[in-house]
């Protein structure tokens, strides 16, 4: 009998003693909640770290490009902040997906891995495209708009695809929000575009994270 079983007041696993209907329903609910927690990536955590990356990454870039802080905040710090935070959020996302999917196989794993490869392929090609345009004489003041606008177009579309694959309105809605804020931000020009991306774009993630957490509580009620 392990600690967890003792804490939940359960008999040892092999025990076949009579279960009352109440106890059986309670057990179904608690085991369901426990299994969901260990098998499904925590969407709220993933959206939360991406929210921080957007808010802080684009926020710092906004401050740096607005020039309010003078030389205290050179542009390279802004770029480094975005890259570091995005890399950290990517690691957290991968960590969640890999840890929770450990030992599980089947048709949906294939779909998930194709989805993961789609991200890599899209992002690599996006970088090649934007770098090629810069190389071929894109005016320097347009570069930030190209990079943010094109990246968010790809991100938004991949969220839409995820929403369609897993029939998840939350992910689809977030994709639509990313597309609209990304495209809208470009029309404002630098540095206002970064303010929109930080506050409106980045603000959408905490909202989605809270919605995901509420949804996971509702799908695994304490009492059936």
């Amino acid at each position: 009998m392990d600690e967890g079983q003792r804490a939940r007041g359960l008999a040892p696993a092999g025990d076949e003693s009579e279960l009352s209907p109440e106890a059986a329903l309670g057990l179904i609910a608690s085991e369901r909640r426990r299994a969901l927690r260990s098998l499904q990536p925590d969407t709220a955590v993933i959206l939360g770290v991406w929210g921080v990356a957007w808010l802080v990454g684009f926020g710092v870039t906004w401050l740096a490009s607005s020039g309010w802080l003078g030389r205290a905040l050179p542009p390279w710090i802004a770029g480094a902040t975005i890259v570091t935070l995005s890399a950290a959020a990517t690691l957290v996302t991968f960590g969640q997906v890999l840890a929770r999917g450990r030992g599980v196989h089947g048709p949906s794993r294939g779909t998930s891995s194709l989805y993961g490869w789609s991200w890599l392929l899209a992002m690599v090609c996006l970088c090649l495209l934007d770098l090629a345009l810069e190389h071929q004489g894109l005016p320097a003041h347009l570069a930030p708009l190209l990079w943010t606008g094109s990246t968010l177009l790809v991100v938004g579309l991949l969220y839409l695809a995820g929403g369609m694959i897993w029939a998840d309105p939350l992910l689809y809605g977030l994709g639509a929000w990313v597309l609209v804020t990304g495209a809208g931000s470009v029309s404002l020009g630098v540095p206002a575009n970064f303010a929109v991306l930080s506050l409106a774009g980045g603000g959408g993630f905490p909202v989605a994270a809270v919605a995901a957490r509420v949804r996971s509580w509702q799908s695994a009620p304490a009492r059936p």
Partner: peptide, 25 residues
């Protein structure tokens, strides 16, 4: 209707249809 088997059934039911889980997991 036995605690251990009920728990196994519930844990497996959380996976989408057709998904398999390894014995150790």
């Amino acid at each position: 209707h036995a605690q251990a088997r009920l728990r196994v059934m519930v844990a497996l039911s959380v996976l989408p249809f057709g998904e398999q889980v390894t014995f150790s997991r």
